[in-house]
Amino acid sequence: MKKIILSTLFLLFGFSTGFTQSFKTETGKATFYSKVPLHSFEGVSETLVGLIDLDKGTVDFYIDLETLDTGNGKRDKDMKLTLETEKYPFAEFFGKLVSDFNAESNDVQGVKVKGTFKIHGEEQEIEVDGTLQMTDEGLHVTAGWILNLLDYKIKPPKVLFIKVDENQEIKIDALLKPIEG
């Protein structure tokens, strides 16, 4: 029995110290681009939280939607109402790297992740193309995809009676620092 306990402890120990390939940020940048005929605007948050574990191949990102700033108080208020941020405060993605990434190289490498994106209380399986680059400061991530508001039961808001395009371009850009094991 002692052996079992020892092996469990070993497993536990091994598990908790196996984190040298993990990278994290709390200051990533997430931007969405909205289009209305003859007019477009963007919303930016610089508090994107991300965790990438290269050992397990997991990718975990979320933002607090109330930190999105469109540069206009009225628009921010409308956006929060549309996204129902009091009820659903986060937009989040959790998934896995499904393409190879060479952590030894410093080149920008195209990668693909697959996972669940959740916003407005609705979940969708998505596939996102992005880039990863191992730098001296950490792991640099960029990614972009098109989010269809109707897929997440978000009613496109109106700007001066004209509906905002239901397809919103999302971009993220973050430098994740290594987590000490």
């Binding site: 598990f15 948050s45 939280v49 574990d53 986060f90």
Partner: peptide
């Protein structure tokens, strides 16, 4: 521990 390491806890900014 393995579950908590799988996904970060969501915290308000």
């Amino acid at each position: 521990i393995s579950i908590s390491e799988a996904q970060m806890e969501r915290k308000r900014a």
